[in-house]
């Protein structure tokens, strides 16, 4: 059973960690979650990024956020990756099955998975 005592334990465990993490996150993963994105299947994609980034302890380097309509509705679900001064990488028609590869090759390995990017699809 999930109890409030258990939540209190999470609080005690997290207290110090949260302060440490502030200001970090050199890579930003942004998932389009407007009506067009949601209808095209963005929710499981966002879920996959959130869960796998946490499971692989990438939270210190990678921040996963959501945004509104990116303006290219026919390519939704769209995921944009921002990293420092590098050019933004735009993944289009993203499916949850693609997420492990994007995390492994791009977020960890530093090489964008070009076959899923807008350049490859357009």
């Amino acid at each position: 059973m999930k109890t409030l005592e258990e939540l209190a334990q999470i609080r005690d465990r997290m207290k110090n960690k949260v302060a440490l993490r502030e200001g970090s996150g050199e890579i930003r993963v942004v998932v389009g979650m407007a009506t067009c994105g949601i209808a095209a299947g963005a929710r499981p994609v966002l879920n996959a990024f959130v869960e796998q980034v946490a499971d692989q302890n990438l939270g210190d380097r990678v921040t996963v956020t959501q945004t509104g309509c990116i303006g290219m509705c026919r390519f939704e679900p769209i995921v944009e990756v921002f990293e420092g001064d590098k050019e933004r990488v735009t993944y289009v028609k993203v499916k949850p099955e693609m997420v492990p590869e994007i995390i492994k090759e791009h977020l960890i390995g530093g090489k964008p998975v070009t076959k899923y990017t807008i350049g490859a699809v357009e």
Partner: peptide
């Protein structure tokens, strides 16, 4: 609001472990 009372000010609701707890609590 009830969860915030337990978490206090140091730990936000959008911490992954807290979100996972909320998810599992609802699923239960």
């Amino acid at each position: 609001r009830e969860l915030r009372q337990v978490l206090g000010e140091e730990v936000p609701l959008d911490e992954y472990e807290v979100l996972a707890w909320i998810r599992d609590m609802l699923k239960e």
